[in-house]
Each structure stands twice: as structure tokens, then as C-alpha cells.
Design a protein around this nucleic acid. Structure first.
Lengths: 205, 205
DNA sequence: CCTTAATTGTACCTTTCCGTACAAAAATTC
DNA sequence: GAATTTTTGTACGGAAAGGTACAATTAAGG
């Protein structure tokens, strides 16, 4: 959480906007339009602030994008991963994960797909810092899943291998969603994939 | 193949550049920099032509991007898919496919990852024509694989389901490559995934 | 060799890009 | 309530964006 906080302890004119709301709006613009495809007018328009406010709070366009990724992880990614703890079996955990993310990837009030899986991953090809950040996010997710599978103890194969397969498939779901797949498309695919992974015992959703 | 051909039957001043080479150069720029991230100067610089020549031959930036996708399919995608016909078993076919694409995704003289899987898929979120084009490419690949699996006859599960799993994993390999994974990283992942899919009988590469 | 057809290079156009200067406004501190 | 601190809105910069006009150039056709 950088968000250029000048230690506003009460002095001076108060902020006329909610930084978190503004950041959320910026995130959605980047999510739809991509990094270079998003202009400062796009941003200030959606955030309902003007440029000096944007620069005072978020430094510049690139820093704002980094903050938007962080915000995405905090508000969308992490909660979805936390839900993994609800599953009592490996199958339940994976099915729940897939069903959670197919909903997020096709949500009506967000752009299609995943900010990180599409926009940031594209940018990663030409921005080293982004590349490392996103690669670490993916690794962490795999590590978290691996750990959880070990705790549950009923994985029918090496937990790391299973986690890799699950996260890889999740990445492909993000791509499909970006390409216009509906939630039920994705759920049907997830069902079939789950049956390949663990045998056929029931639907995801 | 659109490539604004004014039926150059010999009249007028001859072209001073090779359109296919120029298109190939443009493809690589888009591949690295993304669609909006690529400027006309980037393009004319890499293609070694000036703007009027670019516009005469390729209409505009967006049409050039579409031509670049077509060129990518023709020179990289289709040949990789054609290699599928060499495999004598389902396992051989899948292993060969993974090993072919991990090489392509990490080739030293190309940008990392896949033009279509990263750049075009990102753009698909805000460009309907691109979205449909890319979605059809993915579907065709799945259909081709399904067909091939049926011909081979030794798939241990529904061929369509298997093809979906394979193409989905291929999409995730493209994302990982964009995030900096090496060829051996990807091959190791592919090995593990193949063992999950078909049981453990040998390495991909 | 003159006309016609096509491409080339330069120079230019308008718009938009990202970023900032600056004065007015709104709060706190003394 | 004057001084101080911070944010706001407007307005402006220089650079780069995508795209085109136009004259010069190079070929084939007659």
C-alpha cells in the first residue's frame, strides 16, 4: 500500500474524494482497456477527479496501475483464495475454487476476464517489475493450494502437481472469459476438467 | 490474406520492400509491445518502411494487427498444429504438442509467450471482432485435436474433454511463458500435467 | 519518349498523449 | 483571524499519437 499518503493528520484542505473508490474505478478502466490503452482522461473521468489530484495521490500512471493490481488482489483475488479454506475435501476445494472464479470472471459489473491474467500478463512481456510481481502472485497461489491440499490429506496424487494443474486451468478459464465465454460455459468446462483430474463424482456448480 | 493488393501486375514503381518480411516484423512488434503499446513509429521502424507505404499496403494500424494475427497463425500456429499428425498415439500426440509449443513460447528470437494468447486475448476484452476471431481460433484448435484423438482411437476418456484439457493447459503455458518461465520450466510442468492426464509413463521431452 | 500507374520520402495536419504550473479554496494551528 | 498546509480546478506545455497531401521517383505500356 503505497498510495502516496502525505500523512494527512488534519491540516490543509480535505480530500474531496475517497481514494479507495477512486482506485477501484481506475482498476476497472485498466481492466477493460489495458495499460497503454487507458489514457489519463479515461482515468480521471472514471475516478471523478482531475489530474493534479491523481498525481498527488498516485504519483503517475504506472504507479496507479501497480496500485490497481494490489487493489485487485485485495478485493477480488485474496477473498476468492480465502474461500478455499471452506472446502472439507480436495474435490470440494477445487470445485469451490472453480465455481468462485467463474463467477468473478464473468461478473456483469466488471470487464470480462481477469485484470492480472489478461492485462497485467500481457504487460509482463515488456515490463520487468510487472512480470516479477505477477509471476509471484501465481506462484503464491500455487503454494497456498499445495499447502491446503496437504492439510486436507485426501489428494490422490502429489499435491504440488495437483495445485499446478488447478491453477493452470484457472488461468485458462480467465482467458476464455476474456474471449467471451459465459459463466455456464466455464462451469461446464470446469466440471469436465474436474472429472479428468479426480474422476467423475458430481458437478462443480 | 487481405493485404491490400492493388493487383500489381507490373505497372508503376515496384515495391521496395518484401510485404511478408514487413508483416513479420510488424507481428513481432505487436507481440512484444501489445496493440495500443505499439506506435506507428515502432512499426515503420521495425518494418523499415515509411508511413505511406504502410498505409498503402495494410490500410491502418488495426488492419495490420489483424494481418499480423493471420501471419502468426500461418507461420507459427498452423505448423505447430500440423505436427500433431505425426503422433501415433494420444500420449505421443499430446507430448509432442506440449514440447513443440514450449519451444515456440520461449524462442530466443521472439518475444515471450504467444501473440494470440497474451496480446490479442487482452485486446479481445474491448474489441468484438478480435474477440470473435481469437475465440474461433481456440475452438478450431480444440476441434482439430478432438478429431485427431478420435482417429487415433486410444484416448482413455471422452476425446472432446481431453482436447479441452490439453488446449486449456496450452493456454496456461503461454501465460507462464509471458511471465518469464523458461523452456525447461514449461517442459517440467507439461510432464507433470501429462502424468495427471494419462498416468505416468514417460517424459514429454 | 510520352503517358500512365504505382511507390517512395518529406513534410505536415489534427488530436491526444502524459504531466505540471499556478492561483483560488478549504481546512488546521497559533 | 492571520499564517500555514493541503487539495482543487483551470489552463497550459512539449511531445507523440495516428493519419494524409504532395511532389519526386521508378517502373511498364503505347
Amino acid at each position: 500500500m503505497k498510495i502516496n499518503q502525505p500523512a494527512n493528520r488534519g491540516r490543509g484542505r480535505p480530500l474531496a474524494f475517497d481514494p479507495t473508490q477512486a482506485l477501484d474505478a481506475a482498476m476497472r478502466v485498466f481492466w477493460l482497456k489495458g495499460y497503454e490503452g487507458t489514457s489519463l482522461s479515461d482515468l480521471t473521468g472514471a475516478m471523478r477527479i482531475n489530474k493534479p489530484s491523481l498525481y498527488a495521490r498516485f504519483d503517475d500512471k504506472r504507479a496507479l496501475f501497480l496500485a490497481a493490481i494490489e487493489h485487485y488482489v485485495a478485493t477480488i483475488g485474496a477473498p476468492n483464495v480465502q474461500k478455499l479454506l471452506e472446502g472439507k475435501t480436495v474435490r470440494e476445494t477445487i470445485a469451490g475454487y472453480f465455481s468462485t472464479i467463474t463467477a468473478a470472471l464473468t461478473s456483469a459489473d466488471s470487464p470480462p476476464g481477469c485484470l492480472i491474467g489478461s492485462v497485467a500478463t500481457d504487460l509482463a512481456g515488456r515490463d520487468e517489475e510487472i512480470r516479477e510481481l505477477v509471476a509471484n502472485l501465481v506462484s503464491s497461489t500455487e503454494a497456498f493450494l499445495t499447502q491446503r491440499f496437504k492439510e486436507l490429506g485426501d489428494a490422490p496424487m502429489d499435491e504440488q502437481t495437483l495445485a499446478e494443474a488447478v491453477v493452470s486451468f484457472a488461468q485458462s478459464l480467465a482467458a476464455r472469459a476474456r474471449l467471451g465465454a459465459t459463466q455456464s460455459d466455464l462451469n461446464a468446462r470446469a466440471d469436465r476438467f474436474l472429472s479428468v483430474l479426480l474422476g467423475t463424482d458430481g458437478p462443480v456448480s
